[in-house]
Design a protein around this nucleic acid. Structure first.
Lengths: 149, 149
DNA sequence: TGCAATTGGTTACAAGTGAAACTATAACGT
DNA sequence: ACGTTATAGTTTCACTTGTAACCAATTGCA
């Protein structure tokens, strides 16, 4: 008594399923930017994220990087370790709380940042170029709503 | 002679950077769905994706799963192996091409699918509930443009 | 003061992942 | 028909990642 057995199961249509579409888009975009700096600077995506945070908020602790980045603390710890190792980040100790680190980009770190940041912005512009002004504004406002915890 | 040294470096503002926002949103959404089925069914995200593809397109080869899923072939191979192992997918061999597999969900596979799919759809609805009708339509059309290769 | 609970950060171990090498089959060109 | 090339899929190895355990410094409070 089962005509159209597949339809009876109501499979998801991935190509119209929002979470799936978001994931494809996000991966494509992030990856296309990442491949540019990964080879050139031997820089992982996590490391680059940490660097952008430190560029905007110098002299913060690893904990604050975690808070500001929505990354997990182990990932940050490892990224910072490698960045310090590579001489791209300077790590100090907080006065009055010896647990806390105080992180900032080194000269070398800034040099890389200043090369990669425009490149990332260019990718964003290229992506947004497919939308007109109105759509760009709509997208922003929609993302605001979806990201509001 | 460097006043405002940070501004001079023009750091990215992650919270307004589209690729970053997409990535946060996508990870949050996918993860919130995934945690529901991971514990309950011991099912990884990759395996679930393969299952959704097989639900929509039964009797296809692993190769076709790769093509339709934008996943990498090793990941698919492993996911399929585990699904077959767990009795959730039946694997046959293509007539006339012994290299190709012919995959489809087993009874047990369909049973899981039929539990998880509505759950995934509920998450999508919950997400979209934050937007009004017009915004939902805009988002769809914008995603269409951004995803058009 | 002293000791349990919390916090910043690292380490250890298991699981997951990707690139490249490999096996088996099929397709192609001569 | 036969050797070359291409394809489907798996395996291996090195690397990454996540979870939980851990250490050290700090806080809270009896």
């Amino acid at each position: 008594m089962t005509l159209e057995p597949v339809a009876a199961h109501a499979p998801l249509e991935l190509e119209h399923f929002l979470p799936y579409r978001l994931s494809i888009l996000s991966n494509t975009v992030s990856q296309s930017i990442a491949t540019e700096y990964q080879d050139r600077f031997e820089l992982s995506m996590t490391e680059w994220r940490v660097m952008t945070i430190l560029a905007r908020f110098p002299e913060i602790s690893a904990r604050e990087v975690v808070d500001r980045s929505a990354m997990d603390k182990v990932a940050v710890s490892r990224a910072v370790a490698r960045l310090v190792d590579a001489g791209r980040v300077d790590r100090g100790i907080h006065d009055g709380d010896k647990r806390r680190s105080v992180l900032k980009l080194s000269e070398a770190g800034w040099a890389i940042h200043d090369e990669v940041a425009p490149l990332a912005r260019a990718h964003e512009r290229e992506l947004l170029a497919r939308l007109d002004e109105g759509e760009q504004a709509q997208l922003n406002s929609i993302l605001d709503k979806l990201l509001a915890l």
